[in-house]
């Protein structure tokens, strides 16, 4: 998967996520994140499972955190709407930090009109439920991931890494 920026968006992202110490992943399918999900499934050094829905995944990650894991969910921004109660009454209330790795459908470059509604709502939604945002618009931005995750864990706050179309390149 090459793109005009001549980097493999999955490879550079995966490298930074591993560097950050994340070791327990769940995912809900996404075309943009498909290669990342394939890598997670094949990585024997981490725990991974697909989940039926984002909210369920958050429950699983909370359990993993309680036993000392550093958990993350791979999903589309539309799934953030499915997660709101679990974020507030489980993650935030018990101070359980989870990293959300989110493909930002509806961001500039989105070919499907219907995706733009949740695409526009995502910032306010994340702010409303007190999840910090790291927006990675291009390859160089991934370098910020490890320190943001470290800060999230240190403060027991969840972090959303938003990956818009500009990150994935026009080839998508």
């Amino acid at each position: 998967m090459t793109n005009p920026q001549e980097f493999d968006p999955t490879e550079v992202l995966y490298k930074e996520l591993k560097k950050s110490g994340l070791d327990f992943f769940v995912s809900v399918p996404c075309k943009l994140l498909g290669d990342l999900i394939d890598q997670l499934r094949e990585d024997d050094s981490i725990s991974y499972t697909p989940v039926s829905r984002e909210e369920e995944g958050i429950g699983i990650l909370a359990g993993a955190y309680l036993s000392g894991k550093k958990p993350a969910i791979v999903m589309q921004n539309s799934g953030f709407g499915n997660s709101v109660n679990a974020i507030c009454s489980l993650l935030n209330y018990y101070q359980i930090p989870v990293v959300f790795i989110i493909s930002h459908r509806g961001s500039p470059g989105e070919p499907i009109e219907a995706q733009k509604v949740m695409g526009n709502a995502i910032y306010k939604l994340m702010e409303a439920v007190d999840v910090d945002i790291l927006e990675v618009k291009e390859a160089s931005g991934v370098a910020n991931i490890p320190k943001c995750i470290e800060k999230a864990h240190a403060s027991s706050r969840s972090l959303g890494i938003l990956l818009p179309f500009s990150y994935w390149g026009n080839g998508q």
Partner: peptide, 18 residues
């Protein structure tokens, strides 16, 4: 659990897997 009705078995699964 003090919230997130429905997620007890999911929390249990995350614990059992780790």
């Amino acid at each position: 659990m003090l919230g997130s009705m429905g997620l007890a078995p999911s929390i249990g699964l995350g614990l059992a897997m780790s």
